[in-house]
Design a protein around this nucleic acid. Structure first.
Lengths: 215, 215
DNA sequence: GCATGTGAAGCGCTTCACAGCA
DNA sequence: TGCTGTGAAGCGCTTCACATGC
């Protein structure tokens, strides 16, 4: 058996980013009643190639049957384990503009176990309102809310303007949050023990724009 | 002078993905009135390191002054040129759920020259409505709309459910659109001459989840 | 002196090609 | 025979370290 799987060592970053895509494809197969899948088929569903998929899976362990393929349920289970998805994750969001508002109600989050348990905004007009079952609180309440939530808050979503993003991140970090996703169009700094993902929607369009003019 | 810049050859993919982030930082500096910036400062603002930045810039040409730094305005100009941002881009969006609705009004798009000129949905209750100055049309109108828009449509945004995403993409491609960004949580296929970017918000949270359990 | 520009080295990821096994 | 699992080769990107030039 594979040494790396025994040691539960770190996976390559590129592999980590693909696991959720594999998982998404596997859940789709399971919903269709498929029980077995080959690396060829799964790779196609996930938008990659069979060699890549098999190499990725080899970091997790040995789950396939040669000449046959992989059990869909088993792969779902293993990947969920590796991704830490066997339990729900508690999430808060700051900034209830239109993007933030859409994210609070986004079905894709709750379906996959990401529960938005708190929402915060600095606009007094929004504070006290309830959207999608979540009460909007003031920024001053953030730290206490995080500290008083049993088990803590796993992930903080920043959906504010660029000018507020860094100070919001600082508040989250002070409150003890260790994972942040930032939708504001600015680069924010976090300490080494905090994981950060930046998602700038305009950046995605600009990348497309580059490729458009190359033709 | 650099041969690659003369030939306007292709840039490394990783560099392309960073250019919009540099540009964002440079525009911020320009707004603050800064005229000169060093690779050290700009790299920090963009969340990378000076060597990386200088290497990236070297693919575009030679713009710096040794011992001094780079002219902010000149870099903005060069990067805009390389990213094809010297003219506005016409964009359509399909799917006016909460995420789609938020994207139609997203200031970050229009500010950066991405103009949403058409919106489409299959829900009769939404067709005919106007959001953010954009009329919502039926799916049947999509192809004619794209073909009758002078200069064509540059980019199509898919913000539908996963189950509709591939057929929406096919409609866009048939209408002649060459760049697509897909927010639906499913992998879609496009021909080789169409550029595609997949943005799955749940995938981002799942990646964070992986890192959370590693501590 | 100081910051840029860049070959060269280093590193991580992807792809290949085939051994291993049902 | 057919598909997995994996060393090894190949490739692209990052980092280094220093020559270059204001």
């Amino acid at each position: 058996m594979n040494k790396k799987s025994l040691k539960k060592g770190k996976l390559p970053q590129a592999t980590i980013a693909r696991l959720p895509v594999y998982l998404r494809s596997l859940v789709m197969l399971a919903n269709k009643g498929e029980q077995i899948v080959s690396s060829d088929i799964l790779a196609q569903l996930a938008g990659t190639n069979a060699a890549q998929l098999r190499k990725d899976l080899s970091y997790l362990g040995e789950f396939g049957t040669r000449g046959v393929g992989y059990e869909v349920d088993q792969l779902i289970n293993e990947m969920s384990k590796w991704l830490g998805l066997l339990r729900d994750r508690k999430v808060i969001i700051v900034g209830l503009g239109r993007l933030g508002g859409a994210l609070v109600g986004y079905q894709g989050f709750s379906q996959r176990g990401f529960k938005i348990v708190g929402a915060f905004d600095r606009d007094p007009a929004k504070i006290g309102m309830v959207t999608d079952g979540v009460l909007v609180r003031s920024m001053e309440e953030l730290e206490d809310f995080v500290k008083n939530t049993p088990g803590g808050i796993d992930i903080g979503i920043i959906a504010t303007q660029a000018s507020s993003a860094q100070s919001v991140a600082n508040k989250m970090i002070n409150a003890g949050i260790k994972a942040i996703i930032n939708f504001a169009p600015i680069t924010i700094d976090v300490p080494a023990d905090v994981v950060l993902r930046q998602v700038d929607l305009s950046v995605e369009l600009q990348i497309l724009s580059y490729y458009l003019q190359k033709e």
